[in-house]
């Protein structure tokens, strides 16, 4: 079961490291990472495998959301199907 983590906000030191640590703590495997600076905004997208996630995906998403707030960025974690359905015929 895959999920998509998106991080959008002002660039800062250690964003990737902190998000990856949070994933590792929960046994969430990071499969792909892409990161860009779009018009001065930091945008990172991670595809992660949440099959073995220790907590419920909603609880994990909440943890990431709180982590984001401490860094001044917005972190969302949602199931991947939403993006697939919206953009594929």
């Amino acid at each position: 079961m895959e999920a998509v983590i998106t991080v959008v906000g002002k660039d800062a030191v250690g964003i990737l490291a902190k998000v990856c640590t949070a994933c590792a703590d929960e046994d969430v495997n990071v499969e792909e990472v892409t990161q860009r600076i779009l018009r001065g905004t930091f945008a990172m997208i991670m595809i992660v495998d949440v099959t073995k996630c220790k907590s419920e995906i909603t609880a994990f998403a909440k943890r990431l959301d709180e982590l984001g707030k401490t860094m001044g960025v917005e972190i969302r974690c949602t199931r991947q199907e939403l993006y697939d359905t919206m953009h594929r015929v």
């Binding site: 860009r36 969302r76 953009h87």
Partner: peptide, 16 residues
């Protein structure tokens, strides 16, 4: 394969 642009577009549609 997920496209970065598609993902960001969805998020923007929901948040903004």
């Amino acid at each position: 394969m997920l496209d970065t642009h598609d993902i960001l577009e969805t998020i923007q549609m929901i948040t903004d």
